[in-house]
Design a binder for these strands. Structure first.
Lengths: 217, 217
DNA sequence: CGCTTGATTATACAGTTGAATAAGAAGGCT
DNA sequence: AGCCTTCTTATTCAACTGTATAATCAAGCG
């Protein structure tokens, strides 16, 4: 008998590409880069392996695209929280801080996914540029929020403050994602807000009683 | 003619084990976990692949040992800087901060190496325990330094402060290692000292004019 | 000095990897 | 309808993976 051939639907290019990218991300998050083989990716995306080379010339290209997508989504979450208009400057900064310290950003999967791409940055200048751009975009958002605060601080200081707070949030994000059981429920958010406030000389804990509502999509 | 067999020396167990661990680390740092194949590791360590299984029952065991070695060396550097006796409490804390923000800790290789092991933490409880122990050891050293400061702050606050400063240093470490060209020479150390001081309410910049001398081995 | 021991090498193996190619199916065009 | 381009699958390939096992040689001991 003729070998029964798999039935399939034709899908738009965008749909297939994003399905492959999503599949790649979930595999890297679960089992690291070595788990993201072309066959595993294809299987999870519901297609066969050969299709990958139809949309991405090489596997590296797919890896790069999925890294880009991750970075985009990370800075997007923060940018959304920073855009809230009907709030005080302190409230927007607090919302920004909070959004990075709770799911979906603060999750074991995100950190592991991010770490999984890390070593590729050293050998691939394009990927490094993506990383640098995302880092600077995140920091610039932060710096704008800092500049909007009602306080007397020289603008020259804003850069250093943004670097410090960005680092603080990164560190809390990593630790909280990797060791979720080592911290009480909202402990890291409180610590993030208090420390950010200390660095900037403002009080962020007061206006954030409503914070659990912020950042919900 | 008879195939010439490779000449070799017998080495002590400790020497071979550490050679294999070092080789594993340098390969992971350079090309990520996927570059650390048994053959590459053996070649770099100057032995043949089969020998690995003589010292480590499986490759995973070797990976675990090299992760342990990395974590040990990381916390050791900080502990050494914190142990300086003939200095003020502020001076010791400043030395601790500085030691994490300069080589050999702050290096692209270190971060990439650390990130390379990351995803294994999710599936291997033993490795996760190693990571947690190292993280807590680092934080405890920090907390002791904080407790020794001459200031009026409730001891209950020390834990939160140590978590925050640890996160800050982690974040600066990652960013500085990954994007070394984005920061001026001692910029990150200054930022680390100023921010740590702000979180704790002390001045760390003053007593650290000699800081470049600290932490040199 | 000869012998035993076990550290080390060499070879083999089954499975998997990323990539290449050819065949077939779906849908748009006229 | 019929053709033609684009998408999708199936199959193949050489290279590489971790592990297992057998052969061999270095070195310490009697």
């Amino acid at each position: 008998m003729p070998p029964t051939r798999r039935i399939y639907r034709r899908e738009g290019e965008e749909s297939r590409r994003s399905a492959l990218i999503t599949a790649t991300q979930s595999l890297v998050a679960e089992g690291g880069p070595e788990a993201a083989t072309v066959r595993a990716i294809a299987s999870r995306a519901g297609v066969t392996a050969g299709l990958i080379r139809h949309y991405f010339q090489t596997k590296e290209e797919l890896i790069g695209a999925s890294f880009r997508a991750l970075m985009d989504s990370m800075i997007q979450t923060g940018a959304d929280a920073a855009k809230m208009v009907d709030t005080s400057p302190e409230g927007r900064l607090a919302a920004f801080v909070g959004s990075t310290l709770r799911p979906p950003v603060m999750e074991a999967g995100s950190v592991v996914l991010w770490a999984g791409y890390m070593h590729k940055l050293r050998n691939d200048p394009d990927l490094l540029a993506v990383h640098e751009a995302a880092y600077l975009a995140f920091r610039d958002t932060l710096q704008d929020l800092i500049a909007a605060l009602p306080r007397k601080a020289p603008a020259a200081q804003h850069r250093a403050e943004a670097i410090a707070i960005n680092a603080l949030l990164d560190g809390l994000w990593v630790e909280g994602s990797l060791l979720p059981d080592s911290f009480a429920a909202r402990e890291l958010i409180t610590i993030g807000l208090r420390s950010t406030g200390a660095i900037l000389g403002v009080d962020l804990l007061k206006p954030t009683d409503l914070l659990p509502e912020f950042g919900k999509s």
